[in-house]
Simulated assay, not measured.
Amino acid sequence: MTEPKLRVGVYPGTFDPITLGHMDIIRRGAKLVDRLVIGVTNNPSKSPMFTVEERMEMVRRECTGIDSEIRVVAFNSLLMDFAEREGAGVIIRGLRAVADFEYEYQMAGMNQQLNSRIETVFLMADVSLQPIASRLVKEIALFGGDIRKFVTPTVSNEMVERVKIIGRKGS
C-alpha cells in the first residue's frame, strides 16, 4: 500500500506586519492541507517596515500554538515556481472585499496559465477582520494611532518600537 500524497498549500504574502486577518486565513487554511507553507516575500510596489527575516520570525512566533504543520519560508521568485518547489497543489489566498476579488481573480488566471496543476483557493476573511490591511495598519501606526484591534499585542509593540526608530531616522 502506498502512502497517501501529502496535501501541501502555500499562503504567500508580505506580512508587513502579520495581522489578525492573516492569522484568520492561516488558521482556516491550515485545516485544508496537511502542510501549510507560508511564503514571505517582498513586493516591489511596497516599502516594507520590517525585513524579510523579521517578518518570518514574526509569522513563526504568531503561528505557535496552531495545531498544524506550518513552515515559514522566504521566497523571491514567481509564486508558481515557489509553489512547485514546495510541492504545493494549492495556493491559499484571503479575500476581504470586492476590490480584492478583481486583483486576485486576475492573478489566479495568470497563475493558472503558468502552472495549471496548482489550484488557487480563496478564503473570505472573517467579517470582523475584513477591513484590516497591513498597509493601513502601518499608516495608522506611523501617525501614532492605536493598532491593537488589528494585530496581536506583540506585533503592536514591535510596530510601536519600529515607528520610534523610523521617527529618529527622519529627524
Score class of each variant (00 low, 15 high):
M1R: 14
M1C: 09
T2D: 14
E3F: 08
P4V: 13
L6F: 03
R7T: 12
V10Q: 07
Y11G: 07
T14F: 04
T14M: 12
L20W: 13
H22W: 14
M23T: 01
R27H: 11
R27C: 02
R28S: 07
A30T: 11
V33N: 11
V33G: 06
R35T: 10
V37I: 14
V37W: 02
I38S: 07
I38G: 02
G39A: 10
V40H: 05
P44G: 05
P44Q: 08
S45Q: 12
K46A: 02
P48F: 07
M49H: 00
R55S: 09
M56V: 02
M56H: 02
E57H: 05
E57C: 00
M58H: 03
V59N: 06
V59G: 02
V59T: 07
R60M: 09
R61F: 03
E62Y: 08
E62D: 13
T64V: 14
G65N: 11
G65Q: 08
I66C: 02
D67G: 02
D67A: 14
E69R: 11
V72H: 05
V72N: 08
V73Q: 15
V73T: 12
A74N: 08
N76F: 00
N76Q: 08
N76C: 01
S77K: 13
L78D: 09
M80C: 09
D81C: 08
F82K: 04
F82P: 08
A83F: 05
I92S: 10
R96Y: 06
V98E: 11
A99W: 09
A99H: 13
A99E: 15
Y103A: 14
Q106H: 14
M107Q: 15
M107G: 12
A108C: 12
N111S: 14
Q113G: 13
L114E: 11
S116M: 11
S116A: 15
R117M: 09
I118D: 15
E119H: 14
T120V: 14
F122W: 07
L123I: 09
L123W: 07
M124G: 01
D126L: 07
V127F: 06
V127A: 11
Q130V: 13
S134L: 00
V137W: 04
V137I: 12
I140P: 00
A141L: 08
L142A: 05
F143Q: 10
F143E: 04
G144R: 06
G144Y: 01
G145Y: 05
I147R: 10
I147K: 11
R148T: 15
K149Y: 14
F150I: 04
V151L: 10
T152C: 10
P153W: 08
T154K: 14
T154Q: 08
T154L: 03
N157K: 15
M159F: 06
V160F: 07
E161A: 13
R162N: 04
V163C: 04
I165P: 00
I166H: 13
G167D: 15
G167M: 12
G167T: 15
R168C: 00
K169R: 12
G170A: 11
G170N: 12
G170K: 13
G170D: 10
S171D: 05
